[in-house]
Simulated scan of single mutants.
Amino acid sequence: MIKPSITQELYDTIYFNLEKMCYTVYEKLPEEEVPYPFIVMGPIHKRHRNLKTAIGVICDVDIDVWGDSESRFSVDSIIDEIDSVTRINTDNWSFIKRVNESDCQILHDNSTDHDLLHGVMSLVFESR
Rank of each mutant, 00 (worst) to 15 (best):
M1R: 14
K3H: 10
T7S: 15
D12E: 15
T13S: 11
T13H: 04
I14F: 10
Y15N: 14
N17T: 00
L18R: 07
L18C: 13
M21C: 05
C22W: 01
V25L: 11
Y26V: 08
Y26N: 06
Y26L: 07
E27T: 13
E27S: 15
L29S: 08
E31R: 10
E32N: 13
F38P: 03
F38E: 02
I39L: 07
M41T: 02
H45W: 05
K46T: 10
R47F: 07
H48R: 11
R49A: 09
R49V: 13
L51A: 04
T53L: 12
T53Q: 13
T53H: 12
I55Y: 08
I55R: 14
G56K: 07
G56I: 03
V57Y: 09
C59K: 03
I63S: 04
D64L: 13
V65G: 03
V65I: 15
V65T: 08
W66R: 10
D68I: 02
D68Y: 03
D68S: 15
F73L: 09
F73W: 00
S74R: 12
V75Q: 07
D76C: 07
D76G: 10
S77A: 15
S77Y: 07
I78P: 03
D80H: 10
I82W: 03
I82V: 11
V85D: 04
T86K: 14
I88A: 01
N89S: 07
N89H: 00
N92R: 10
N92E: 00
W93F: 11
W93I: 00
F95C: 02
F95G: 02
K97Y: 01
E101M: 14
S102N: 03
D103W: 10
C104I: 12
Q105S: 14
I106W: 04
I106S: 05
L107P: 04
D109A: 02
D109H: 06
N110R: 12
S111Y: 01
S111A: 05
S111G: 11
D113Q: 10
H114T: 11
D115V: 09
D115N: 10
D115F: 09
L116W: 00
L117S: 02
L117V: 04
H118M: 00
H118W: 08
H118T: 00
S122T: 13
L123N: 01
V124R: 09
F125W: 11
F125L: 06
F125C: 02
S127K: 07
